[in-house]
Design a protein around this nucleic acid. Structure first.
Length: 265
DNA sequence: ATGCCGTATGATATACGA
């Protein structure tokens, strides 16, 4: 059956319930993966999101920071989430869908300001987290695995994933060491970047624009931090991908926009 | 590529985002 999977760093789910409703009205995702819900599991706005169609919800929240959720019109066969780097900081949730398809939702640490693991513990944590991800997927590598990996990976890997490759080479999210870690995870399970299967690599594509710029549209200084990958077993099932750029202009927006993939599972 | 912008918190400044 055709399924539309969306991922969105909402930057506080409680403030974005109405925007999620608009997203549902306009784009009707069957599954919506959220990051940075910034609420404890018990405070998640489950009822209003159920009322717009997401009957099935798997929420891993915490107070103030991080937090991930998978909302779905399709039922789950199993659910879970791993702690990473020995911390239960709500950065990973997974569900099993029909026909054994796994869906993993990640929120990779941002990494702080300074791209140096020796002086910046947040950057060290980011690299450690990504190393663990690569090792985890290597250990689970299986050519038959049908899996989807989505999330805010906080890395813009390609030159066309940032507004200026040259000017961002030393900026956290686009440094060579982060891109190398990103590529290690990708290679760990032969993941396919589903979005770049449909948006040519030569074309600029962004999913995040800073709040700090007075006008996000001016000079289009964005980055592609939000990703959807699939395993080789699912690659032939991909039908399309979109980055919903216009949502950055909605009222009281997140600084990230949703990314969507259509596929058959 | 620095911003001074948004969100959260037993808050009225501070941590965090990237």
């Amino acid at each position: 059956m055709p399924v539309r999977v969306a991922t969105w760093n909402v930057n506080s789910v409680r403030l974005r319930v109405d925007l999620i409703g608009h997203l549902m009205d306009e784009f009707a995702p069957d599954i919506l993966c959220l990051q940075e819900i910034k609420v404890e599991t018990g405070g998640f706005p489950a009822a209003p999101l159920r009322d717009i169609g997401f009957r099935h919800q798997h929420v891993i929240g915490m107070k103030s920071y991080n937090g991930v959720a998978i909302l779905s019109r399709l039922p789950f066969k199993a659910v879970g989430g791993e702690p990473w780097c020995g911390r239960h900081d709500a950065r990973h949730a997974w569900v099993e869908l029909r026909r054994g398809v796994e869906l993993h939702n990640f929120y990779v640490p941002a990494g702080g300001d300074v791209a140096d693991p020796e002086t910046n513990p947040k950057f060290a944590h980011k690299l450690h987290f990504m190393t663990e991800m690569a090792n985890w997927w290597t250990a689970r590598k299986d050519p038959a695995r049908k899996a989807i990996l989505v999330g805010d990976l906080n890395v813009a890997p390609l030159e066309t994933d940032v507004w200026s490759h040259r000017q961002l080479l030393k900026v956290v999210s686009h440094t060579p060491v982060e891109v190398a870690h990103y590529n290690r995870i990708l290679a760990a399970h032969d993941w396919v970047d589903a979005v770049r299967r449909f948006i040519p690599k030569a074309e600029k594509a962004f999913s995040w624009w800073s709040y700090r710029s007075p006008d996000w549209t001016q000079n289009d200084r964005g980055r592609r931090l939000d990703h959807i990958w699939v395993t080789p077993a699912l690659e032939p099932k991909l039908k399309g991908a979109q980055i919903l750029r216009d949502i950055r202009a909605w009222t009281r927006p997140s600084d990230h926009v949703p990314v969507i993939v259509d596929m058959v599972i």
